[in-house]
């Protein structure tokens, strides 16, 4: 069949989902309300590690002092959000969005 590609495997399992979050983490790790209602929808595709800091798959042949571990990575994305303090105001703010799960080689010594 046309368009079929070879199977691809990743060292880290992750799940991908479109979300319409009403709250998000800013770069400084504080929470802020995100605008998401029927009139104004902001859909974001998240990709999250399945489980935190699990060992990577297919990683049984790294050098002896390397420990392969799956790590969550993020990107910063600007979203319309609502100021937590003062008067209600819609502002653009950068939020941490889980973007992918990568195998990191932890160096022991």
């Amino acid at each position: 069949r046309v368009g079929s590609t070879n199977e691809e495997e990743y060292l880290c399992k992750s799940s991908r989902r479109i979300m319409y979050p009403k709250k998000g983490l800013r770069a400084d790790n504080t929470w802020q309300l995100i605008v998401n209602n029927e009139e104004f929808k902001q859909g974001i595709q998240f990709e999250e590690c399945e489980g935190a800091d699990l060992p990577c798959d297919y990683a049984s042949n790294f050098a002896n002092n390397y420990k392969p571990i799956c790590r969550q990575h993020y990107v910063l994305q600007n979203l319309a959000s609502i100021e937590n303090e003062g008067k209600l105001d819609v502002v653009q703010q950068a939020f941490k969005i889980p973007s992918c799960c990568k195998c990191a080689l932890l160096k022991l010594i």
């Binding site: 069949r1 368009g3 079929s4 991908r16 989902r17």
Partner: peptide
């Protein structure tokens, strides 16, 4: 959750 990728079949 279903993901359909028509181009990748």
């Amino acid at each position: 959750k279903l993901t359909i990728q028509p181009t990748n079949s």
